[in-house]
Amino acid sequence: MGNNKSNRRAFLSKIAGISCLAAWPQLSISSPGNNIIAKKIPASGEVIPAIGMGTWISFNVGSNIQARNARTQVLDTFLKLGGGMVDSSPMYGSAEEVMGYALKRLGTPKPSLFAATKVWTPSAEQGKQQLEDSLKFWGVRRFDLYQIHNLLAWEKHLPILLQRKQAGTIRYVGVTTSHGRRHQELEHIIKTQPIDFVQLTYNMIDREAEQRLLPLAKEKAVAVIANRPFQGGDLFSRLADKRLPVWAKDIDCHNWAQFFLKFIVSHPAVTCAIPATSQVEHMIENMGALRGQLPDHKMRMQMLEYINTV
């Protein structure tokens, strides 16, 4: 979030010294009594927590005050447990407005917040207006990350976003896709355009991105955000009656959410996973994945094998 530059700088410098102790891609951000798993944004070297938060469905609660206050608690929990990136979009109904409500109630500015949203319109002119609206809804002066939603009219929006980046209204520029759609076009954009972030679907079942997109993003120094980390909840349904394997403790996983998330963020090309939830208890579970050991390659294979057998 751009409305408190000095706070952000102080926060980052506080974590930077300790984070240097660990090797890339996995860095460890330390705050008193806590080691947080963090990743570098390749374009700048800035370090962000590896677990973020999505707002799809979960924050679209309209004008329901009770639900808005409940989401405020979810955001508060996320930030208190070391979360950074919050991702939204004008397509998510009232989610941006609700995010602004929650931030206001929590008392902005939040130095650790990494505010990410998107442009979602076929028109360049409307896109400009959408950025202004999003800034107003969130109650921030600039976005840390501004993305082109589902690659919609990306040729029109990208030059404008790059200009905005130069002007300082946004810090990083990205493009997004989900559900494995338009991967070929995404590949073309990563190869040819000066983007900082790419957002795509990656989880223990949807692993198409491992073939070309993740290696390419790593090669081109593009940060990767993994959306749908629980496959829209299907992963939980699939394993509802299954116990976590005993060896999950070796990588500090105490529930399925942590198991799924650690698999994702342990990929060397992945910068951040953005699970969405409307419940504080689930947020606590998710944020547990921000601590402890990450699986190495051998363990990742073991995790996949386990999922495939159950």
């Binding site: 799809w56 469905i57 979960s58 679209n60 609660v61 309209g62 329901n64 639900a67 397509m91 998510y92 109904g93 989610a95 076929p122 589902n150 690659l151 919609l152 009219a153 559900h179 759609r181 338009r182 409307s278």
Partner: peptide, 20 residues
């Protein structure tokens, strides 16, 4: 390109929120 949204994209809310 502008039609590249699915039914899921058009339902950005949950059942309880719809009822609320």
């Amino acid at each position: 390109e502008s039609l590249q949204f699915s039914i899921v994209d058009m339902t950005p809310y949950s059942r309880p929120i719809y009822f609320d």
